[in-house]
Amino acid sequence: DELVREILGRCTCPDQFPMIKVSEGKYRVGDSSLLIFVRVLRSHVMVRVGGGWDTLEHYLDKHDPCRC
């Protein structure tokens, strides 16, 4: 939770990309009902993408309208 909030807090946009914790390891992202699975691996916040894992920073770079 703290690492996810820290990464989201780096955004300086007036309207921050919403990530709402639904349950342990599950977050709702953006304005959709899309759920992502998150885990911490060796101090990196990882997001389940397709059949693999990606860093939360890279995921936000691709999906946050402010960072695109």
Rank of each mutant, 00 (worst) to 15 (best):
Asp1Cys: 04
Asp1Ala: 05
Asp1Leu: 03
Glu2Cys: 08
Glu2Thr: 13
Glu2Gln: 13
Glu2Ala: 09
Glu2His: 13
Leu3Ile: 11
Leu3Glu: 05
Leu3Asp: 05
Leu3Ser: 06
Val4Asn: 01
Val4Thr: 02
Arg5Cys: 08
Arg5Pro: 00
Arg5Glu: 14
Glu6Pro: 01
Glu6Lys: 10
Glu6Met: 08
Glu6Ile: 06
Glu6Arg: 10
Ile7Ser: 07
Leu8Ile: 13
Leu8Phe: 04
Gly9Lys: 11
Gly9Cys: 05
Gly9Ile: 05
Arg10Ala: 08
Arg10Gln: 11
Cys11Ser: 00
Cys11Trp: 00
Cys11Lys: 00
Cys11Val: 03
Cys11Thr: 01
Thr12Phe: 02
Thr12Asp: 03
Cys13Lys: 00
Cys13Ile: 08
Cys13Gln: 01
Cys13Arg: 02
Pro14His: 08
Pro14Ala: 11
Pro14Trp: 02
Pro14Ile: 08
Pro14Met: 06
Pro14Cys: 06
Pro14Leu: 06
Asp15Phe: 09
Asp15Trp: 08
Asp15Met: 14
Asp15Leu: 12
Gln16Ser: 10
Phe17Cys: 00
Phe17Val: 03
Phe17Met: 03
Phe17Gln: 01
Phe17His: 00
Pro18His: 09
Pro18Gln: 13
Pro18Ile: 06
Pro18Gly: 06
Pro18Asp: 09
Met19Gln: 00
Met19Ala: 05
Met19Gly: 02
Met19Thr: 00
Met19Ile: 07
Ile20Pro: 01
Ile20Gly: 06
Ile20Leu: 10
Ile20Ser: 09
Ile20His: 15
Ile20Ala: 09
Ile20Lys: 12
Lys21Glu: 07
Lys21Ser: 03
Val22Phe: 06
Val22Trp: 00
Val22Asn: 02
Val22His: 09
Ser23Tyr: 08
Ser23Thr: 12
Ser23Leu: 02
Ser23Trp: 05
Ser23Lys: 08
Ser23Cys: 12
Ser23Ile: 02
Glu24Gln: 13
Glu24Asp: 14
Glu24Ser: 09
Glu24Gly: 06
Glu24Arg: 07
Glu24Trp: 07
Gly25Tyr: 07
Gly25Met: 06
Gly25His: 07
Lys26Ala: 12
Lys26Tyr: 12
Lys26Phe: 13
Tyr27Glu: 03
Tyr27Asn: 05
Tyr27Thr: 02
Tyr27Arg: 02
Tyr27Lys: 05
Arg28Gln: 09
Arg28Asn: 02
Val29Thr: 05
Val29Phe: 10
Val29Ala: 08
Gly30Arg: 08
Gly30Ala: 07
Gly30Lys: 07
Asp31Lys: 10
Asp31Gln: 14
Asp31His: 13
Asp31Val: 10
Ser32Met: 09
Ser32Phe: 03
Ser32Ala: 12
Ser33Gly: 14
Ser33Ala: 12
Ser33Asp: 13
Leu34Cys: 15
Leu35Cys: 12
Leu35Pro: 15
Leu35His: 09
Leu35Met: 12
Leu35Thr: 14
Leu35Phe: 10
Leu35Ala: 11
Leu35Gly: 07
Ile36Leu: 15
Ile36Val: 12
Ile36Met: 14
Ile36Pro: 05
Ile36Lys: 07
Ile36Phe: 07
Phe37Ile: 13
Phe37Trp: 14
Phe37Pro: 15
Val38Asp: 09
Val38Thr: 07
Val38Pro: 08
Val38Ser: 05
Arg39Lys: 07
Arg39Phe: 10
Arg39Glu: 10
Arg39Gln: 12
Val40Glu: 10
Val40Pro: 06
Val40Trp: 04
Val40Arg: 12
Leu41Gln: 15
Leu41Asn: 12
Leu41Gly: 08
Leu41Arg: 13
Arg42Gln: 13
Arg42Ser: 10
Arg42Ala: 12
His44Leu: 08
His44Phe: 05
His44Gln: 14
Val45Arg: 02
Met46Asp: 01
Met46Gly: 04
Met46Phe: 12
Met46Pro: 06
Val47Cys: 10
Val47Ala: 07
Val47Arg: 00
Val47Asp: 00
Arg48Tyr: 10
Arg48Ile: 05
Arg48Asp: 09
Arg48Cys: 09
Arg48Val: 03
Arg48Lys: 15
Val49Met: 11
Val49Ile: 11
Val49Pro: 02
Val49Gln: 15
Gly50Asn: 13
Gly50Leu: 06
Gly50Ala: 11
Gly50Cys: 06
Gly50Met: 08
Gly50Val: 05
Gly51Lys: 14
Gly51His: 13
Gly51Pro: 09
Gly51Glu: 15
Gly51Ala: 13
Gly52Glu: 15
Gly52Ile: 12
Gly52Thr: 14
Trp53Cys: 06
Trp53Leu: 11
Trp53Gly: 14
Asp54Asn: 07
Thr55His: 07
Thr55Pro: 08
Thr55Arg: 11
Thr55Asp: 07
Thr55Leu: 10
Leu56Asn: 02
Leu56Trp: 01
Leu56His: 00
Leu56Lys: 01
Glu57Ile: 04
His58Phe: 01
His58Ala: 13
His58Lys: 11
His58Met: 06
Tyr59Lys: 03
Leu60Tyr: 02
Leu60Glu: 02
Leu60Ser: 01
Leu60Thr: 00
Leu60Asp: 05
Asp61Thr: 10
Asp61Gln: 11
Asp61Tyr: 12
Lys62Asn: 11
Lys62Met: 12
His63Ser: 06
Asp64Leu: 02
Asp64Tyr: 01
Asp64Ser: 00
Asp64His: 06
Pro65Trp: 02
Pro65Ser: 01
Cys66Thr: 03
Cys66Met: 03
Cys66Ala: 01
Cys66Gln: 05
Arg67Gly: 00
Arg67Cys: 01
Arg67Thr: 00
Arg67His: 01
Arg67Leu: 04
Arg67Phe: 00
Cys68Val: 14
Cys68Ser: 15
Cys68Asn: 11
Cys68Gly: 15
Cys68Asp: 14
Cys68Leu: 15
